[in-house]
Nucleic acid binder design. Structure first.
Length: 565
DNA sequence: GCCGTTTTCGGCCCGACTGTTTTCAGTCG
């Protein structure tokens, strides 16, 4: 996609200009331009053709000319000029903790360092210590910074981040009061990957809380430890940043540390125009503090309604909030049930009874048990005989466990020709059928899926793109737009699968789906009773995709759930 | 380089921590 390429070039221009010590606002302009292009919903070539490019906030005459030049000549002179004399491999070193443009320039000038290998050598051969401003501690910190950069260039998936956050709270909770602790940052915004964890704890004894964190046995190295702020690396190389704030500043601190950075910059700009200053301790008019105890208060001081954390990406939410058009974001409690769940009859871990009981305990009004059908051999798919046996077990669970309506469900496979492995016994009795592609990811998946959607028995397409977060890209050549169009026309639901390793549809894709009138199914994709909790994550991801109750099919009562056949 | 409900020129977000400094620059989030 040409948008991503242009965004990348603008980012590199910003890095190069910064390295050269150019006007920092010009640097900022390119950096913002890079983000603006990356966030576009449309292809830039369309905007150029319709002369709407400069309507995009952050794109003015200069950047528009750069883009037009790139589209017509496949090169960008601003990029070539900016990068002249700046090795690309040098700019990548910005990722090493402790190295910014100034120190990079100094290392380049004094030691002719141009890449990571050169930096590693210079540190080993003790040459860095000779450069003015590089004392022994800084050199040591760079040595570790390089090591860490090499080891963990990758970010954590949301799933890893959630597991680590629970581990930290569990250990830290034995030392200090963590009842009001919150993980802010990208974890609270539900980004698909997190670079590090931002932990926020209200307390008057900052030093003690920071010290308690640094003492945990999972901590491998302490990067910083002050009265209000501490940073540590834990055993698996991940970084945890802790901030301790007074309880009456918690709202302001939450805003500040939840971000995103771009969202916060916009908030501060708005504040400044109103003669207000906003920081992690509150909103101030001169010396007087006018807000800060709750997030709602902070937004109200700027005449804005509270914006859900998952939406804070500066992708139009601030304008929508200002204009009163912010959608009423989905709340977890509005989800009435889960319609994609496996039991030990196929590849789930828990029996029907335990799974149903867990759903009842969670207040689900309905639950579809969608074990795999027979062709999913690896998943011990249901044969007609085993389908009948499971049906008897479901009937017993219905009698014994009140409160939750259990549906006879099935997950069928979309085969190489777009057929589904639905057998007559299931066709006769199933109350909810989901379909997915499980093999042949390179074989005409779009056409197969469209064909499967013609089958009246199919209620939903699950994990529609087939991707795994950070591990697998999804079906080759997949045309999501074609599937969205068909889903909107036929009423077949598309799933937002909240398995943190899948997140499929993604929040952004779900937003596109909802905008086109597709009915979105938010489900856990559970393979065990405890996985049912993921539905809460699903609700958060739906908010990230700007979904409302009306966009999500499983907010409806069961009787109005299924489409007309 | 971008932008305008105080502006077409003069602004452009804020604070903590570290290390190397003798009062502050650089980096980070």
């Amino acid at each position: 996609m040409v948008n991503q390429e242009i965004s990348r070039l603008f980012g590199l221009i910003a890095d190069a200009l910064e390295f050269k010590g150019e006007n920092r606002f010009r640097v900022l302009a390119y950096r913002r331009g890079s983000e603006a292009v990356a966030d576009l919903d449309e292809d830039v070539s369309v905007l150029v053709a319709e002369a709407r490019l400069t309507e995009v906030p952050g794109i003015g005459k200069g950047l528009a000319a750069d883009i037009a030049e790139y589209l017509s000549r496949n090169r960008m002179s601003a990029y070539e000029t900016a990068l002249a004399g700046v090795p690309r491999t040098l700019l990548e070193l910005k990722g090493v903790s402790g190295l910014g443009p100034k120190r990079l320039a100094l290392l380049h000038r004094e030691l002719a360092i141009t890449d990571l290998a050169g930096l590693e050598r210079a540190i080993e051969e003790d040459r860095v210590a000779g450069v003015p401003g590089f004392g022994p501690k800084l050199v040591e910190s760079l040595r570790r910074g390089v090591q860490r950069y090499v080891q963990s260039r990758e970010r954590m998936t949301l799933g890893e981040a959630l597991r680590l956050s629970r581990r930290v709270l569990d250990r830290l909770g034995r030392e200090v009061d963590t009842r009001r602790a919150v993980f802010a940052g990208s974890l609270r915004r539900c980004r698909e990957t997190c670079g590090d964890l931002d932990l926020l704890i209200p307390s008057r004894k900052g030093g003690e809380v920071v010290a308690a964190l640094t003492r945990l046995d999972m901590v491998e190295r302490v990067l910083a430890a002050g009265e209000t702020k501490g940073s540590v690396l834990v055993d698996d190389g991940r970084q945890i940043d802790l901030r301790v704030v007074p309880a009456d500043s918690l709202g302001a601190a939450l805003c500040y540390f939840t971000g995103s950075k771009e969202h916060n910059v916009r908030l501060r700009e708005i504040a400044k125009k109103r003669g207000l200053k906003i920081n992690e301790y509150g909103v101030f008019r001169g010396e007087e503090r006018v807000a800060g105890k709750t997030e709602k208060e902070v937004y109200a001081a700027l005449d804005l309604p509270w914006i859900p954390p998952e939406m804070r990406e500066n992708r139009g939410e601030i304008e929508a909030a200002r204009d009163g058009t912010l959608p009423e974001a989905l709340r977890f409690r509005q989800l009435r049930g889960d319609l994609h769940v496996h039991t030990s009859w196929s590849n789930g871990r828990d029996p029907v009874q335990d799974t149903v009981r867990a759903a009842a305990e969670r207040g689900h009004r309905y639950l579809a048990l969608t074990d795999h059908a027979a062709s999913a051999l690896h998943a011990r798919g249901l044969t007609p005989e085993r389908w009948m046996a499971r049906a008897a077990e479901i009937e017993r669970a219905r009698r014994e466990i009140p409160g939750v309506r259990v549906l006879h469900g099935l997950e069928v496979d979309i085969d190489q020709d777009g057929g589904i492995d639905l057998f007559p016994e299931a066709a006769a009795r199933a109350e909810w059928i989901v379909a997915g592609v499980h093999a042949g990811f390179r074989n005409e998946v779009t056409a197969r899926m469209l064909r499967a959607m013609d089958r009246p028995e199919v209620d939903a397409i699950v994990h529609p793109t087939g991707r795994l977060v950070d591990r697998r890209a999804g079906y080759e050549g997949f045309d999501l737009d074609a599937v969205l169009e068909k889903a909107a026309r036929t009423g077949v639901c598309l799933e937002l699968n909240a398995d943190p390793d899948r997140l499929d549809l993604s929040a952004e894709e779900a937003r596109r789906a909802a905008a086109r009138g597709v009915r979105v199914l938010v489900s856990s994709g559970a393979h065990g009773a405890s996985d049912l909790d993921r539905l809460e994550l699903g609700a958060a991801l739906a908010r990230r995709g700007w979904l409302t109750r009306d966009n999500v099919v499983n907010t409806a009562p069961l009787r109005s759930l299924r489409r007309k056949r």
